[in-house]
Design a protein around this nucleic acid. Sequence first.
DNA 1: GCCG
DNA 2: CAGTACG
DNA 3: CGGCCGTTACTG
Length: 731
Amino acid sequence: MIAPQTSRDAEAKKKIGFDALYALDNESDEAEDDGLLASLQKVQGKTLGDPTISLSRSRRTPGRPPGSLVRSKSNIIPALSLSTQQHQKPRNTKSPLELLNELSAAAAATSTSNSIVKDTPTLQHHNTVTGVPSLEKPADDGKMPPSSALPASSAIPMIKNKKGKGKQVVDIKLVPEDQRIFQGLHFYFFPNSDTHPGRRQRIIKAIEYGASWQDKFNDTVTHIIVDRDYDFEQLLKYLKLKELPAGIVVVNENYTATCMDFYKLVDTSTIEFRVKGYEPPASSATIAQPNPSQASEVSLQLKPVKRKAVVLSSQVTSEASLNLVSSSAASLSNSPAPGVLDPQQVPNKDEDELDTAIRQAKESHPLASDDEDDVEGHKRRKTNNWQDKFQCMHKHTGKSGDQGPNAHTLVVLQELADHYDQIRDQWRCKSYRQAISALRKQTTKISTKEAAMRVYGIGSSIAEKIEEIVRTTHLRKLDFAKLDERQQILNRFMKIYGVGLHAAENFASAGYKTIDDLLQKAELTDNQRIGIDHYDDFNSRVPRAEVEKHAGIVKKALKGLDKNYIVNTMGSYRRGAQDSGDIDLLITKPGASIDEIRTTVMDRLVPLLTKHKFLVAALAQTSQADGTKWHGASCLPDSSTWRRIDLLLVPEEELGAALLYFTGNDIFNRSMRLLASKKGMRLNQRGLYKDVLRDYGREKLSEGTLVEGKDERKIFEALGVPWRPPEHRIC
DNA sequence: GCCG
DNA sequence: CAGTACG
DNA sequence: CGGCCGTTACTG
C-alpha cells in the first residue's frame, strides 16, 4: 500500500520515470476497444437495432397521388401492399390479383434482402412512403367526444383540424418486413386524430411497424389505443356503446412503444397498459388453450376476418410459398380488407375459429406446409409475459428524461432516491430508482396521482409525491431531509471510500462532524485514510477522454509484457457516458488460464505501473488463489488527481459474463440476475448457470451447470432477453 | 418504497 | 463474520 | 406479509 502523502510529493519525480511509458500512449490503440467490443456489436446487431432511425430521409415520388395510405372507410389495405404499390409504380387502382402479386414479390424481395444483408440496411430494403394525407387530416374531427364527456376542455384542442397550417409531409418508413410486429393489426386511437404531436408520432410509428390506422371504429379494429388522459367510460360514451365487441384489445398509449421496444407484441393485460376503468378479459392474458365453452356468436361474426387473417399472415410472416399467397387472392378480392388477429390478442373464445381457419387453409393448400410455422411464428410473438416486468427486457437509454415531459419531476425524485441511497435505505432507494426509470419512459406529463399510479413501478406513495412536485415544484419532505444535520454528516462521511453507513454512524455518534475531525481524531483504516486524502478526487467525475488515457497506459504496459493481452474499458464508459465515476478495465488473454492472467497482472503489471507512479494506491487486491480483481487508484503523469481504477481479471471462457457484469448498469445487472433466478438459473460475473437447485423459494442452491459464459450475446439469448447494446442498459 |  | 464495494 | 442480485469479491 502506498502512502498517499508520499505520492503527492513524488509527483515531479514520477513524471520523469514515467514519460517513456506515457509517450507510447498517445499513438495508442484506440481501435482495440472498438475492434473487440464496439465493432463486434456493430456488426452483430446494432445496425439491426432500429433501421427506421438509421434510414435516410430520402423522399420519393413526390408526384405520387395522394391517398395511397389514406384511411379510407374501407382502408384496410395493409401498409405493406400500399407501400409496395408505391414502390413499384404509382397507381391508384389495381386488381386484387395484381396487387397481390406485387405484394408477394415485395415480401419475397424484402425478406430475401434482409436475410442476405442484414447488417447494412439500405433504402431498397425498405419501402418509403411519403406525404401521407391521412396524417394531415383527422377524419373524426367534428365528431370527437363532446367536451362534457371529457375531463377538461384542455383535452379537446388536440382534435383541431390542422389543415389551415399547411400540409405536413410525413415520411413513413416501413420497417423491414420481419420486424413489422403490428402487421395486419388495425388500430383505433382514442382520440383518433394525429393533431397531438405525441399521438401523431405513435400513429406513425405504429404504421411503420405494420399496423393500419382505422379512421372509424369498425369491426376490423383489433386494438384501441387510449390516451392516458382518457378512461374507458369516455371511450364507450364516445363510441356510443354499452360494451365493446369481444376480441378487441384496449390498451393505453404505452402499449405501442413497448411492443416496438420488444420487437414483438407484448402482453396486453398487464397493468402497465391498463386503461382506467377497463377490466381486460382475464382470458386475453393467458390465451394458451382454446376454450370451447366460449365459442359463440361473436366469433361467428368475426370469422370471415380471421380466416383471411390466417392466410394473409402466413404470407407476410413466413415467406410463404406463392401458391399459398395466390390462394388468398379469392379472399382478398372478396374483401380488400383482410384483417389479421394475432392469436395472442384474441380471447380464448376465438381460438376454435382460428384453428378452424388454419385447418381450412391447410386443407385447401396441402402443399403449403408453412402453416405450422406460421402459427409458431405467432406464438413466438406472443409474450404474455411476466418477464415484461424486468427492466432488462426494455431498452433504456437513460437520456430521454432530460428533456422529456417529466424532466423536473424526475430531478426531484432523483434527489429523493439519492437521499435514501445516502441513508442506506436500499429498498426505498431501489423503489425510487424504479419509479424514476418508469417515469422517464412516459411520453406525456404525469401530473396527477391517478395518472402516476397507472405507471408500473409507481405506487401510491410516490404517486402522491409526483403530484405534489408538479403542483408545488417542490417536495417538503426533501427540504426537510436536506436540512437535517445528522443526515448531512452521514452523507458527508459515506462519500469516503471505505466508509459505509455503519462506520459513518459510528463516527457521527462519536461526535465527529467534519472530514477534518476524522483525520485528526478517528480511528481509520488504511483505505479510509486514502479515501479522505483524496476525498475530492474520488468524488469527482472522470472525463471520457481521461478514462481513455488511463486505459491506454494500462493497455500499453500490459502489451509490453505480453502482446496477447486484451484490455477493455468497461463501466459507464462502455455505455457511452461522457464522464465516469471511475475507470473499469477488464483484462483477459485468449487461451490463458486465470492463474496465468492473475500472475501476470499481480506480479508484473501492477508492480510495473506502481513503479512508474501510475498506480498510486491499492485499495483491494486479490489475495486468494482464485482472486480476480484489483481496486486502487491511478494518476496521470501530468496530473495530481487520483482516480479510482478497477481491474477485473477474466479468463476467456468467462468473458461474456464479465462483459455483462462490468458493463452494468447496476440496475440492469440486478434485473438480469433476478430474471435468471426466476427462471431457475443463476447469473453472476462468471456465467449463466441452469438447473440450479434452490432450497426454499430462492436461497440455497447447488452449482447448476454452465449454460454460457463466453459469449455475451448468447447469455441474452439463453435468458430470453432481447439484445441490448451497452448504451441501452442505462436503467 | 413497490409488487405479488 | 459483518461491513463495504463493484457493475 | 416477504422479497427485492450475486452461495459476487475483498478487508479486518
